[in-house]
Design a protein around this nucleic acid. Structure first.
Length: 493
RNA sequence: CGGGGUGUAGCGUAGCCCGGUAUCGCGCCACAUUUGGGAUGUGGAGGUCGUAGGUUCGAAUCCUGCCACCCCGACCA
């Protein structure tokens, strides 16, 4: 039991905040709405980045980097884009400070006002498409498949560590294509990459779907997404992939010469996932003892805690521990040996539970004598005694890590299944949302008006129209008008 | 941005109403004994009381501005 970690059942929100801080993932910074990602948290993000980056490259993308600042005039070139972002932009107006005359420190130098203000990027479509104009002349220049790892700023009213911060880290892919079909195929492909990453590495089951017009990205013709369900029954948008049509090509005059000698606007996509995935990872699996990490993303997968009395005993145990470490590392398993003499074993056990280390090995004099190890699983909190001779240690641990990865995925999957409810009447809709939450699968008449009304009345939004939606006749849960299939509603982060 | 609340040592807090030496626990440092589920004892260090002003002989305490955080709303790809 971790000392004082709030329980999920009592205050989910507080539990989340405390967990993020106590597990050394991140903390609030002196800057409003901005967080410091601590080394332990950042190394999880680095693992995510590494896998995603590999997947992007496997699908033919290359990385590039565009400026942090965007001239104000760029943003307004795509009408719905600027409308969506204008209210949350940080703006640079001056380029110099000077000493205050009263000696009170530095002030903004009024002489140094910028001719044109610069926006700190909330996303990079505009600056990238203005660049693409120069890069694309012919169908031979297409497709253009670029990704950028960057930080962006969105001036949100209320922030929460990882889930919504003023500045956040993300990747944004921006591609240009000769045909609508090809751009749409790219949009679908990247949504699938995100889904695969979420399920395979984060052990997070996701629903692939399409956003309604209301929820669509500002400047997109179509937005695909992956949606995940958190333990408190709220949905979290984990990644989006946008079909931009020719909107940005038209706004920035990006045309290409076709094979047939014509001149046409380019088709675009953009897609992104952010440090919000960290929030999803934390909330999806963790418990009242602390973090539960999927082995594939844990900064280290195994920790060895020696149990000893005195230097001599530690020396003996260390010999065996180092042998185990070498075996594990050879098998590609990351391991930390915590032989600090400053904390007792019980303290370390609790600490690594809080930090979500998937497997813990305790090794003491008793084990040396009996040729055993104590293996503890973080996900189930169960312990077993393992005989050295039973099988090679790396094989045993490797199997355990696979089981844990699979186990926490299955647990999250079962949770989602249990918390996805088909509802068929307005009364039922309200009751289930109130008492059970989770995803509500319901018929919808397809109009933004109904969607808005439901949001206003219940705070639930349409998370997505699932791609595997079954075509079935029905009547809208709110308006009673005809519908052709169910969509997923939920309260969302 | 509107309503409510909170800021006191690294963390959690008492004191504030009724102005006068800043409280306690955890953590930290030293030493000793300890080490198979968050050790014990003894000694010690650590404070611009969020911040800037004001009132006062004197402000953690009263007043004002500002900042940050939490809750509710609005906002939120």
């Amino acid at each position: 039991m971790s000392k004082g970690l709030p329980k999920r059942s009592e205050d989910y929100s507080l539990w989340y905040n405390e967990l993020v801080k106590r597990a050394d993932l991140a903390e609030n910074s002196p800057v409003r709405g901005c967080m410091v990602i601590k080394p332990y948290g950042y190394s999880i993000w680095e693992k995510m980045q590494a896998e995603l980056d590999r997947m992007f490259k496997e699908t033919g993308h290359t990385n590039a980097y565009f400026p942090l600042f965007i001239p104000k005039s760029f943003l307004s070139k795509e009408a719905s884009h600027v409308e969506g972002f204008a209210k949350e932009c940080a703006v640079v107006t001056h380029y110099r400070l000077k000493n205050a005359e009263d000696g009170s420190g530095v002030i903004v130098d009024p002489e140094a006002k910028l001719e044109e203000e610069l926006i700190v990027r909330p996303t990079s479509e505009t600056v990238i498409w203005s660049t693409y104009k120069n890069w694309i002349q012919s169908y031979r220049d297409l497709p253009l498949l670029v990704n950028q790892w960057a930080n962006v700023v969105r001036w949100e009213m209320r922030t929460r560590l990882f889930l919504r911060t003023t500045e956040f880290l993300w990747q944004e892919g921006h591609t240009a294509h000769a045909t609508s079909e090809e751009a749409m195929a790219e949009t679908v492909q990247m949504m699938n990459v995100y889904a695969q990453f979420a399920e395979e590495f984060m052990a997070l089951p996701v629903v692939k779907g399409r956003k309604t017009a209301n929820e669509r990205f500002a400047g997109a013709d179509d937005t695909l997404c992956i949606e995940a369900l958190m333990q408190d029954g709220k949905a979290l948008q984990a990644g989006t992939s946008h079909f931009l049509g020719q909107n940005f090509a038209k706004a920035f005059e990006v045309k290409f010469a076709t094979k047939e000698g014509g001149l046409e606007y380019v088709w675009g996509t953009s897609w992104g996932v952010s440090t919000r995935l960290m929030g999803a990872l934390i909330m999806a699996h963790s418990d009242d003892h602390g973090l539960v990490l999927p082995p594939k993303l844990a900064p280290f997968q195994v920790v060895i805690v020696p149990i000893y009395r005195g230097e001599e005993e530690l020396a003996l145990i260390s010999v065996k521990a180092k042998e185990i470490m070498a075996d594990l590392r050879k098998a590609g398993i990351s391991v930390k040996y915590d032989d600090r003499d400053t904390q007792k074993p019980g303290w370390k056990f609790a600490e690594y539970e809080l930090k979500g280390v998937p497997v813990r090995i305790a090794l003491g004099p008793r084990d040396l004598e009996n040729k055993t190890l104590e293996l503890a699983r973080r996900d189930t909190l169960t312990k077993e005694s393992f005989q050295w001779e039973e099988m090679p240690i790396a094989e045993k641990i490797g199997g355990l890590l696979d089981e844990i990865q699979e186990g926490i995925y299955q647990k999250a999957f079962d949770f989602r299944k249990e918390n996805t409810t088909e509802v068929n009447s307005w009364e039922e809709f309200k009751q289930v949302l109130e008492e059970k939450a989770g995803f509500l699968s319901a018929h919808w008449d397809g109009t933004p008006e109904t969607e808005d009304k439901i949001k206003e009345l219940t705070k639930a939004t349409i998370r997505c129209i699932p791609l595997d939606q079954v075509q079935e006749p029905g009547s809208c849960v709110y308006s009673g008008k005809p519908s052709t299939g169910r969509v997923l509603f939920a309260k969302a982060y």
